[in-house]
Every structure is written in C-alpha cells, then in structure tokens.
C-alpha cells in the first residue's frame, strides 16, 4: 500500500484564496479571469444590497458583487486596497469585491473536507467544503450559487 497508482490519484485542483471580513475563502483558480484593484463603481438603483455596482472593464460593463454582503457579512467599505476578482462562470463574467487576495495553492481534490452540519446560516449555503492548511481554515465557495442571483432571490 505504499505505492499509489498515478492514474488513480485524483488531479490536484488549484485554488485562489482571499479574505473577506476576517474569514478566508477560496475558489478554483480556473474561474478567475483577472484581479483588479478597486476603482469607484457606479451604483445600480434598486439592485439588491450585495450588488456593489458596475465598473468599466475595458469597454464592457462589469457587475461587481460585494462578496461580504453576499455571504451575509457586513458590507465592505471599499478603498483602493480592496481587490475585485473578475471571475467567469457559466458564460457570465462577474466581479467579486473582497478585502485582499492571499494565496494560490494546489491541493488534491479529495482532501477537501465536507462541511459539518451546523444549520443553514445565510452565508452557509455558499460554502461547499472546508480546507485546513497548516492552521488556516479555508472555506470553499460555491461560485455558481454566488452568481446565481435569481434562484437565490426566489428561495
């Protein structure tokens, strides 16, 4: 049992981790198109709270979500030190406003730990698993659920 078959071992996934309101989260780096510093955005009237606004991404209008607010945390008071993660999922491009980006690391896919059942707080439905790396506890985000606003509003 000391030899592992190369083919059986699941591929590593590369993850990008970032901080939101003192908590570390992560998404698959394959979703990430680019990282940008925060710039003043245009607010959208009558939009849900978690919609931070729209910014000009090289001629395209990019909607930026306040990730903290989306996760049920206190809204981010954005400054130039904040980061917008431009992510693409299901053909949609969306910006995620976070406090700061911390790391890119690769881990075997099966080392993610299922989420313990702790009831369903408002932010909990967006977290699919948790990781522990050294002493850090990193939450794996369900990007689809984050972006899929219609379903969330209907629920």
């Amino acid at each position: 049992m000391h030899e592992t078959n190369e083919l059986d071992r699941p591929a590593d996934s590369e993850l990008l981790s970032f901080w939101v309101n003192g908590q570390e989260y992560t998404i698959d780096v394959m979703f990430v198109r680019e990282l940008r510093g925060w710039s003043k955005s245009t607010p959208l009237p009558h939009a849900p709270d978690f919609v931070h606004g729209v910014i000009n991404l090289r001629g395209n209008i990019l909607t930026v979500l306040d990730l903290a607010c989306r996760l049920g945390l206190r809204p981010i008071n954005a400054t130039e030190r904040n980061v917008i993660i431009v992510a693409e999922i299901q053909g949609k491009i969306v910006g995620l406003l976070v406090d700061r980006v911390s790391d890119i690391f690769s881990i075997p896919t099966n080392s993610q730990q299922a989420l313990p059942d702790i009831g369903s707080g408002s932010g909990q439905r967006f977290v699919t698993a948790i990781l522990t790396i050294e002493d850090r506890l990193i939450r794996v985000l369900d990007l689809k659920a984050i972006v899929n606003v219609d379903a969330a509003n209907a629920a």
């Binding site: 009237p45 209008i61 909607t63 491009i93 969306v94």
Partner: peptide, 14 residues
C-alpha cells in the same frame, strides 16, 4: 449603448 451583464436579475428603470 452597452448591455449590462445581466446576472443580477432585472434592474428596473435601467
């Protein structure tokens, strides 16, 4: 005219 990336649901008035 540019379309809004329509992933935040309807945006009334815009």
């Amino acid at each position: 005219i540019k379309a809004l990336q329509n992933n935040i649901g309807a945006c009334p008035g815009v």
